[in-house]
Computed example of a mutant assay.
Amino acid sequence: MPEVQPVRALVTGASQGIGRAVALGLAQAGFTVAVVARSARALDELVEEITADGGRAVATAFDVTDASAVAAGVHALELELGGFDLLVQSAGRIEPQEVPPWEADPAHVRAVLEANVLGPFHVARAVVPGMVARGSGRVVDLSSGAASKDSGAYAAYAASKAALFRLGGAIAAAGAPHGVLAFELSPGVVRTAMSTSMSQHADRTEWTEPEAVVEMVRAIASGQLDAWSGRFLRVGADTPESLRAAEPRLGPTTRKLVVTPYGPDDPLA
């Protein structure tokens, strides 16, 4: 495995769960990490932990759904660090009840869509122009298996992750001429406050280890998986090694969000 060169990373949703694990893992690997979440206190504790371990981290608290706060916060972080080579979008939420779409609370649906779609859009809008100007950058969206298949529950969450997949694909397509890549990374099922609140995981005994998610993010950041830009990766089913081995088999629509034609005579084919 090639040596990962230290870069400047911005991690949203870094105060807890997968975002926190990714921030710690990147810092331990030598990355300078900017951490973002709504809780300033939790971020301060995270920065203290990283610096006590010999790493470098800075923090700014803001809500990703607030476009003005995102723009101001990212600008302040860029002034301090000089911009970002890696963006990990981990901030997100899920509706509190596992019900069919017609029983979902509209307020919960709106909150999920704002956090999981508008939030990443605001952050990408603030961060990606700097990547374009420098001619390189990688965006990692924390996705979900819910983005790639239909389910009768958590429709807002699934819709938001599918929309995020399409947004990431747009960044990959528009960013490619400028050296900017984007990846949709499903972390598997990590034991977090979100996953343990879901009734479908009530009896689960096997969980994805956070270290596996960190390993995949590091592989993306180091350029090992650039051929997978715009595509769906899943920790647990995939490893950096298996993905590199599969590269010769990639087609135009492999692991992308597409409508499959019914046959060669389908007008959509």
Rank of each mutant, 00 (worst) to 15 (best):
G83Q: 08
V189E: 07
F121A: 14
V190P: 08
G135V: 01
A176C: 05
A155S: 15
W102V: 06
Q97M: 09
A133F: 00
S143H: 01
L185Y: 03
F84A: 14
G82L: 09
A133D: 11
S160Y: 00
L86A: 11
A104H: 01
Q200E: 09
Q200H: 07
A163L: 04
V127M: 05
A193D: 12
V88F: 11
V180H: 01
D203P: 00
Y154A: 02
H108Y: 10
V88A: 08
D85W: 02
D150A: 14
R125L: 08
L118Y: 11
A107N: 08
A173D: 12
G119N: 09
T196S: 06
M194I: 14
G175N: 10
G82H: 04
S199K: 12
Q97H: 14
A124M: 14
A111G: 09
Q97I: 10
P120A: 05
E103T: 07
G145A: 05
R125W: 09
A133I: 00
D203R: 11
G152M: 00
R204S: 05
L181R: 15
G82N: 09
V123F: 02
V128Y: 06
F84L: 14
A193F: 01
L86H: 12
G82Y: 06
A202S: 06
A158W: 03
V128H: 10
V88S: 13
S160D: 04
V123R: 09
V139R: 07
L87M: 06
G145P: 05
P100Q: 01
Q200D: 05
L142N: 08
W102Y: 03
A159S: 15
A193W: 00
D141M: 07
V189S: 08
